[in-house]
Amino acid sequence: MDEAVSLRIEHTCAKLVHRFCFLVDAYRHEELTALWAEDSVWETWRGPIRGRSAIRAYLDAKLRTDVTIHMAHNIVINVVDECNASGSAVFTYHGTKRSDPASLTPRVVGRYFDRFVVTGDGWRFAHRRTEMTFTAS
């Protein structure tokens, strides 16, 4: 595979990881759900969620009372071929009431393990496993 193609795929998949963080924090669930392939799977701390519509229902059921910030870093993307890639990222999550002094302490630090696939709409998440490595009590 041409190096320019590989770099473009890496960049596009890394942008998906960052866009996920931005959209989940903004509670923009319709746009967030569009980042997933129709038959995707998201393994959350509550168990696996299968399919874009189930992911949307999961997101819409969440409370919207906290201010949240997800930060993804140490993103590594591995290009498999022109239609498939995998990757991992470390994430830090802050979420609470804006005036809560605990807001400066992360509630979760963990990892995303992702598989990406090309769809008719471009690159999308095919699978995401969210691992919560450290959690605040």
Rank of each mutant, 00 (worst) to 15 (best):
R111M: 10
V109M: 13
L23T: 04
Y93C: 01
D66R: 09
I69A: 09
G120D: 13
G120C: 12
A57Q: 10
V17A: 07
A136Y: 11
D2S: 12
H29E: 10
R115I: 01
V108F: 12
F116T: 01
M71N: 08
V118M: 14
V67F: 12
D114E: 11
C21I: 07
D25H: 12
F134P: 00
I69W: 13
E38D: 15
R50K: 12
A57C: 08
D81Y: 10
L16P: 01
N74Y: 03
V76R: 11
L23M: 09
T12Q: 09
E30N: 08
G95Q: 06
R46N: 14
S99K: 07
F125V: 02
T92A: 11
V117P: 00
P101G: 02
I55T: 02
V80Y: 09
E82W: 04
T68I: 08
N74V: 03
T96H: 09
F125T: 00
A14T: 10
L35W: 02
A54R: 03
I75D: 06
V109D: 03
H70E: 08
A34G: 04
A136T: 11
S88T: 05
F113L: 13
R107V: 04
K62Q: 15
W123K: 00
N74W: 01
T135G: 06
L23Y: 15
T44E: 08
Y58R: 02
G122N: 13
D66G: 00
T105E: 12
N74S: 15
A89R: 01
T44W: 04
H73C: 06
N78R: 13
Y27L: 04
E3G: 04
S99N: 14
T65P: 06
S40E: 00
N78L: 12
V109I: 15
V117I: 12
P106L: 11
A37E: 05
L16F: 07
L59D: 08
S86G: 06
D25T: 07
V5F: 11
R52Y: 12
S88H: 11
S88F: 01
M132F: 09
G51R: 01
H29A: 05
K15D: 13
R56S: 12
R8M: 14
W123G: 02
R64P: 09
K97C: 04
W123V: 01
C13E: 09
R50D: 01
C13S: 10
L104F: 13
F113T: 03
F22V: 10
T135M: 10
V79E: 06
R124V: 05
A102R: 15
I49C: 04
E31L: 08
A54N: 07
S88R: 05
D100Y: 13
R28D: 13
A102E: 15
H11L: 08
D81P: 05
E43L: 03
S86L: 05
G51M: 00
D2G: 04
T96G: 09
T65H: 11
V24N: 03
H18F: 12
